[in-house]
Structures are given as structure tokens and as C-alpha cells.
Design a protein around this nucleic acid. Sequence first.
DNA 1: ATGAAAGCGCTAACAT
DNA 2: ATGTTAGCGCTTTCAT
Lengths: 359, 359
Amino acid sequence: MPNDPKPDSPAAAKPTAPAATDTKRLQMADIARLAGVSVGTVSRALSGSLLISKETRERIEELARSLDYSINVSAQNLRLKTTRTIAVVIPYDKVSRQHISDPFFLAMVGSLADALTERGFDMLLSRVDADNLDSAARAVNSGVAIGVILIGQWRHHDQLNQLAARRVPIVVWGTQIAQQLYCSVGGDNIAGGAMATQHLLDLGMRRIAFVGDPQLPEVSDRYRGYVEQLAAAGITVESELLVKVPFSAEQARAGITRLCDSGVAFDAVFACSDVLAAAAMQALHVFGRTVPDRVAVVGYDDIEWASHASPPLTTVRQPIARAGVELLDALLTIIEGGTAAPRTLPVELVVRASTRRRS
Amino acid sequence: MPNDPKPDSPAAAKPTAPAATDTKRLQMADIARLAGVSVGTVSRALSGSLLISKETRERIEELARSLDYSINVSAQNLRLKTTRTIAVVIPYDKVSRQHISDPFFLAMVGSLADALTERGFDMLLSRVDADNLDSAARAVNSGVAIGVILIGQWRHHDQLNQLAARRVPIVVWGTQIAQQLYCSVGGDNIAGGAMATQHLLDLGMRRIAFVGDPQLPEVSDRYRGYVEQLAAAGITVESELLVKVPFSAEQARAGITRLCDSGVAFDAVFACSDVLAAAAMQALHVFGRTVPDRVAVVGYDDIEWASHASPPLTTVRQPIARAGVELLDALLTIIEGGTAAPRTLPVELVVRASTRRRS
DNA sequence: ATGAAAGCGCTAACAT
DNA sequence: ATGTTAGCGCTTTCAT
């Protein structure tokens, strides 16, 4: 016996009924009845089947539109065993403290939102504890989403490999790492680190502080670019110029302050994100070390703020708009059963006043 | 007859089968079989029903976990006729040009992500063309989401009223407007405008430029606060000090440049967002009008960047973290059939160096 | 070109 | 405490 009253039967006596949902949700059968056809016909008409005569289809479409009817997506998904939803996950890392509030990440969300909308997908956004990335897999196992885009690789290389091994369709914004089972898409971090460093060297800088944590894969590559350019210029890499901090403005400020206090000489700063660069500039300001006259500063990302900073910040521009498209493209390839090789996107140095040679 | 082969039947000859989905998705019946119980028992066990003996429940939970099984959410939603998904919509307004890339909006997304996660809801994020807010209603009509949170009121008051009239559960981040049928949650914009203005007056400023478009509801309130404080101080509001621009850094820069060029005297700027303030400071810099010595600047929002600006920006802090919680709370009230009155959250002036009185 | 009907995977009566 | 079963709203095969 049915547990719920049939929609048609007036459910005669129902005193305990909560008067809340008095507006019964329209469904296909209603449209069919009103149009004088069967539900099959309505279904076909709304899906644009060519089996339906043009006039019938248009009549039904018009009826549905005027009644504000939308297909019940749960029923549709259940029947079709698929969805048009992609899960976008931003891991929250307690250690590095960087999370969804970093403008760069949020810009990535915007970029993904555009790419997904463009191709008719819905975006399920969630923050998950990075220690528990399995919940990303759950979105797929439960049929909520057909794939996962993870923004930020962090230290979770192994977990990501496990997810990929379990055949969870997943693409990660980050750097390509040896023995990587999952697909990553990211900027060219080695080149980015190199161009920032070379630019400073070209300006005559010789003691360039590096702000970032080389334990993170992406920062590791940027550091490598930095080291390589210094080596090519015959300059020794000094460990005292490494300000090892996660993506945290607070800690960057503290790190630069420590560096200034320590008396170690430096004439430039290469920070691994614009947020870190902003914090560095602020700390330098406290010490009266004006930018760019006393210290040149280069950031990374080119978030919108960089061009409004005072002085406007020289930085390595990440291809954010393209990132969303590429991530989605790679993911769809995987979902369709194909293989997506890791992709490295070109980055670009944007020179602004924070490294303008003193006149 | 079934259109798909039964999961059990090996689907004898199927030469055209794409070898893609070879890993059949686990379902409740599989768990039931493996546990030697019925699907009903599994369903009850996984939903924590007290009817099931503790040991049986734990055995089933363990089995499900070890097999990576998750309940099929489409089937569950179809059966229960509800979901735990909330649609978060960021209207994209071609006129004002402000969209998802504004750090403030993105911070709101972060805040909402936190609030939703906290209460066990999923977030469906979408950008929609503001001229077509109906697509927000579609999310609800199609059963994808049980309610909508709209970030940004813009000029869409009428459309929003229509949605509310159609009984779409919706809450909007914005200002309370007369004749409003929908629930809005927002900062106290009149107070915010007033405190910013009063702060500048206290510093001795007399000619305060206002940067923003008073046609937008929230800006309108901030402008009102500005006008009221000026009036209370016996100062005439001069229309030449109104830099009427939408939330666009470009246009703000151009506006301030125009103001400087015009020779109109001013000793302070009150900008309706930190992004606008940043652009203003940059434009002022070009004219050699240093902040705060020659011009004091106050922003709005207190995005993370504001404290890293040089000089750090005095601004009106919006209660972003609380905003997510309040928006969700109001929405859930409405979904449960209740009524949620518009809420106005307190804002707070954060004084930093951009208005520091010259020593 | 259209109708009839099975069944997607789950939940919750109704049975014991 | 557990099993059995109808049916959530849709899509699609099969029949016409």
C-alpha cells in the first residue's frame, strides 16, 4: 500500500497536515493532462525529441513555460543515472591556514563558475577538511556529481593518488609531480619563479629574499626557478634569505619583520602570492624601507588588487580565466573515459611600479 | 519490459558496450546481500534508526564504509521529496560591471560555504545574468535546491518581489527597501555611511568626495548617512563632490582623475567599497596627493586587503562571517514555512592610517 | 507520432 | 528487530 496519499486523491481527512506545503509541486503528469497527451509525449517534447511533431512540442513547451514547470532533476538523474553537476572542492588546510578567503582561490572559483555555466554544468562548491579528502569521493559515489575539481594540491599528493586509483574522476589545480596518478592543471611555476627572479636580477638586485614554503609543490617549483636563475647569474643561494612561511599574511609579515630585525641585507623580495607580497610591503614600510626605492618587490598570481596597490605590484600573472576552462576540459575528458595528461599553462610577468628602477 | 539490463543479468551479448563504466556502482541491495539482511534494514541502519539493533547497525555501517558505499542521493531525494542543497546565486550585472570577482562578494561566498557546511547543507553556486533571475527560481522548481540565497540586490528589487510572490524561498544580501516582499539581510548602510562621514568630519575634513552610485539600494543608504552627517555639521552637500560610479575600479579611477582635473577642492574621499577606495588612492597618487596627508580616504567592506594597503585603509567593516550565518538562518526559517523579517547587522568603523591625522 | 508501462535506488508504511 | 513492498517522477522500449 502506498505510504503517501496519491496526488490525485484529495487525502480526505488529514487533520495533522502542516499547512506549509500547500502549493503542490507541478509534475509531468499535470502538464500531460492539461495538454491532453501522455507523459511520454511530454517527456519527449521537453527533451526536444524529433519524434514529436513540431506543433505538439511547441504547445507543450509553451504550456510548461507558462506554468513555471521544471523537470524534477532528482527523478531525471535517477532514471538517467547521471547528472550535470561537478563538485568543486577547496581543501581547508589547518597547517598552512590558507583557505577559501584567499583572493586567488576565490578568483578560481569565479573562473570555474564561468566555465561550468558556459557548458551547462552546475557547480557544487564545498570546503573540506584537507585531511579528509575522501568526502570529495563521496560526492561522486553518491551520484551527486560526476567529477571533482580540487583547487589546491597542498601536501595531499598521496591522498589524491589514492582517489585517482579508486577511479574517482578528479582534476587538481597544481603542479605536476613525479608518480602522479591524477591529472593536474597549473601555471608554469618553474618559469614563473625564474622570470620573477630574472627580472630582479636585471634590475641589479643581488640579494633577493624568497617568501613562501618550498614544501608545497607549487612553491617548490617557484623556488626551483629562483634558484636556477640565481645560479645562472653566479649568485649563491643563501638560506638566510629564505623566509619560509605558508600562505598566511600574518606569518609573512612576521617573517619579513624578523628578516629586517636580523640585519641580513637584502635588496628585493620575491613573494609566492600577492597576499604575501602585500604583507611584506607592509612590514617593510614599518622599517622605512620604501618600495621600490630601497627594496623591490615581486608577487605572484596577479589578483585584481595587485594593480591597485601602492605602489602597483609587479607580479607573475596566473592564467585564471583560462584555468577554469582547462580544468573542466580535462575533467570531462576523464569522465568520458579518456585520459587527460597534466597541463602546464604559461604565466607572464607583469611589471609595475614595485620594481621600477629608481630614477 | 525494462529498457536497461538488470544489474544481475550478465547482459549476455552486448558488443557495442563502451568499456567505460565497467565498475558498477554499488547500491543498497548489494550491501544488504553481503550483510545477509534486507534493504529495509540497511536503509534503517544507515539512517541511524533506533529500531535496528546496535550490533546490526554497526556491522552494516562498517560494511558500507569499507566498501566506500554512499547512498544514492537522487533516489533518496526523489523518495523524500527534499534535498539538503541551497542555491547561492551571484547576479552578474552588465551595467554595474561588478561581478563575482569582487573580493567582497567572494568573501561572502566563503562565509556562506562555512555556514552551510556547518549545518550540513550543500551549496550550489551559480552566476546568473541579472536580467534573468528566474533561473534562480528554476533551481527550486526543479527540486535541485530548497531555497535561494542571492548575493547582491542591485536594481532587481521588482524581480525579487516577483520571486517572493511566487513563493520561492529566497533571501537577499542587501538593504531593506519599502514595499519589500522578500527577506533581506544586510549591514546597516545608513549607519555605515554616517560613521565614515563623521569620522572624517572629526578629523576636520570639510569637503568629502563620495564615490559610488546612489541608485543602488545599498549605496543609496550610505549616501543618506553621509548627507545626514554633513547636514548635522552644517555643511552643504555639493553635487560636484559626488563621483557617481558603479562598483568598478576602472570607473572610480577615471572619476577621481576627473575630479582632480576639474580643480574642485576636496580633502577627503569616502568610497563605497574597498576596491573603489583602492582605485581612488591610486588615482590620487598620480596627482601627488598623498594619503592621508593631503587627502584622507575611507573605504567600505574591510576586505582582507584593506589592512595590507599602504597606507592601511580606514574602512567600514561589514560583518561578513556573521552574514553567512544570518542569511542561512533566515532562509531556513522561510523554508520551514515561517516568516523572516529583514535583518540589519551592525557595522563598525576600523580606523587605520589612511585617515591618520597628520602629525 | 503517440500511448502504456517498467523500473532507476531508495524510504517507510505495514506486516510479523 | 527485521522483511516485504509500493511508489517518489521521470525516460525509454515496445507496441501501435
